[in-house]
Design a binder for these strands. Structure first.
Length: 203
DNA sequence: CATCTGATGGTCT
DNA sequence: GACCATCAGATGA
């Protein structure tokens, strides 16, 4: 249970009220912040460079579109928690819950830029190029060893094993990507990335 | 570069 | 039984 003092003392984690806002606003402000992942053997740190906002009722692309179910219940709960699920039977995807309790919303983390603990990420997901390490929502969970055990964890808790940290006061230019791969009425997707970042998953 | 396809399992109808 | 908030590998240009 050793903790990395440098990370604990240097970085502040956004509190619950940061997440308890409109989903697209939270999505944009998550850009440039970091995800910190602790395992028994390492601490991994990576910058959020691409996100996507999902709302509740009225967003046909959202899991919460048709109301509360056992899987999506966490999206209706308290903000600032991780919503992790398995998709295509293959990949785990990481979201951050937003909005007031009772209102569904979540931000999908689509791409990260590795900052430290890269060796550990490469153990979890061997690739030739670092650019390929975490440049997709299914790739980054593999690299950070995130799975259903992380569903519901409090990402505002710096004592935890998975949380968000404010690593910089720098403002990032935001790129609102054109709609991609939306073919079945799911036209409310809001995808944002840090403009010009080479780790974004798709143009 | 673009486009296509199989893998794979939980969730919902 | 249909549907996926994806990825890697293959194929063709």
């Amino acid at each position: 249970m050793s903790r990395n003092n440098l990370i604990e003392k240097s970085y502040i984690s956004p509190p619950v009220d940061f997440y308890e806002r409109q989903t697209d606003v939270v999505a944009k402000e998550l850009l440039g912040k970091a995800i910190i992942r602790r395992t028994s053997s390492a601490v991994m740190l990576a910058r959020i460079v691409e996100v996507e906002a999902y709302f509740g009722e009225g967003d046909p692309a959202s899991h919460a579109c048709r109301g509360i179910t056992p899987r999506n219940a966490i999206m209706f709960g308290r903000a600032g928690k991780a919503y992790v699920y398995l998709n295509y039977g293959v990949h785990y995807l990481l979201n951050m819950v937003t909005e007031r309790e009772g209102y569904a919303g979540a931000v999908l983390i689509r791409a990260l830029e590795p900052l430290s603990g890269t060796e550990e990420m490469l153990k979890n997901r061997p690739v030739k190029s670092i650019v390929e390490l975490t440049n997709g929502p299914g790739k980054l969970t593999k690299a950070l060893n995130i799975d259903l055990r992380d569903n519901g964890v409090d990402v505002t808790d710096r004592e935890g094993d998975l949380f968000v940290a404010d690593i910089s006061r720098e403002k990032f230019a935001i790129d609102v990507s054109p709609r991609i791969g939306i073919s079945n009425g799911k036209d409310m997707l809001l995808r944002f990335s840090i403009k010009g970042n080479e780790f974004v998953s798709r143009k």
